[in-house]
């Protein structure tokens, strides 16, 4: 049985070696852009992240020695994401409740599930076009409301599908126990199912909010942009993401720099929300 210790034939060795090298280098190629991106955002953005940035309006293009910032864009993003969350969270969570608690495997519920999946696959620019058609055209003007609505359509399928998953994880025995005590659907769902699924729903809501905060395409021709403070929900609004787009395309270096600073801010928001979401989920794991 000396065969047992015979080395692999050279052809096999070469095959294994070549594949290892190719696979690992291709994988490295996947990671390089991420690291390069994070490095660029931090190194180019942080130096321009001054106090002014959070408190001032953008300076007119080309003006030197004027305090410049994107406070209006921060407010715009917060307001529009809040509108989006206010519309999509109740609607998405109720839809998910219908799917798991009432519709289950009925034809109607499967149809709803399919349409929500379709909605989640719609390109975000098309969602922007939809908001343009439904709000901007009839109201004859770009508005924070239209932007918030567009973001809510982006969030809705994410919230619905993820909430449905969380609700499905609640053991059916809990629903039965509640029903066996004479509690109706409303009480069982609100008091038992939602309470149990709450961390999961919170996590998915946070992820959806992070996603909405970073979206640009649905805002670019719904909320448009503004150099000024937000003037009501029916006026155009600045946002961090559109500011990055506009100022990245600007020939003025000052505006480019502001775009990098806004990128740090936006990545910060997205990463923070993602971490918060993970923390919520981890907390749940330790308590149950």
């Amino acid at each position: 049985m000396s065969d047992l210790y015979a080395p692999l034939p050279p052809s096999k060795k070469l095959f294994n070696f070549a594949l290892s090298v190719t696979t690992f280098s291709l994988s490295a190629l996947a990671l390089i852009p991420l690291l390069a991106m994070l490095w660029a955002i931090l190194s180019k953005g942080i130096p321009h992240l001054t106090w002014d940035v959070f408190t001032q309006l953008p300076a007119p293009a080309g003006m030197k020695d004027v305090p410049s910032g994107f406070a209006n864009a921060i407010i715009g993003t917060v307001v529009m994401v809040a509108i989006a969350a206010g519309l999509s969270l109740p609607l998405g969570i109720l839809t998910a409740i219908y799917l798991t608690e009432f519709g289950k495997n009925s034809t109607f519920a499967s149809g709803v599930r399919m349409l929500v999946t379709i909605l989640s696959a719609a390109p975000s620019i098309v969602v922007g076009v939809f908001a343009y058609a439904i709000i901007v055209l009839p109201l004859k003007g770009f508005s924070a409301l239209a932007g918030g609505f567009a973001l809510s359509v982006i969030m809705l399928p994410i919230v619905t599908l993820a909430t449905e998953e969380s609700l499905k994880l609640v053991p059916n025995a809990q629903r039965l126990a509640s029903a066996a005590l004479g509690a109706g659907y409303a009480r069982t769902t609100l008091r038992i199912v939602l309470a149990r699924a709450f961390p999961g729903i919170l996590t998915s809501s946070l992820l959806a909010i992070a996603r909405a905060a970073g979206e640009t395409a649905p805002l670019i021709f719904t909320a448009l942009f503004s150099q000024n403070w937000l003037e009501g929900l029916l006026g155009p609004s600045a946002s961090l993401s559109v500011l990055i787009f506009n100022y990245a395309n600007s020939p003025f270096v000052d505006q480019n720099n502001l775009a990098w600073a806004a990128a740090v801010m936006l990545v910060g928001i997205v990463v923070f929300t993602n971490l918060l979401a993970r923390w919520v989920t981890r907390n749940r794991r330790t308590t149950h």
């Binding site: 839809t95 349409l115 109706g184 769902t189």
Partner: peptide, 25 residues
Amino acid sequence: QFGDSGFRGISFLAALLTASIPFWM
């Protein structure tokens, strides 16, 4: 009991509204 059918009705309407968005679009 009324709360139950009301709750069911509201969540059904939510599902209908959500599902109608792609059509609407």
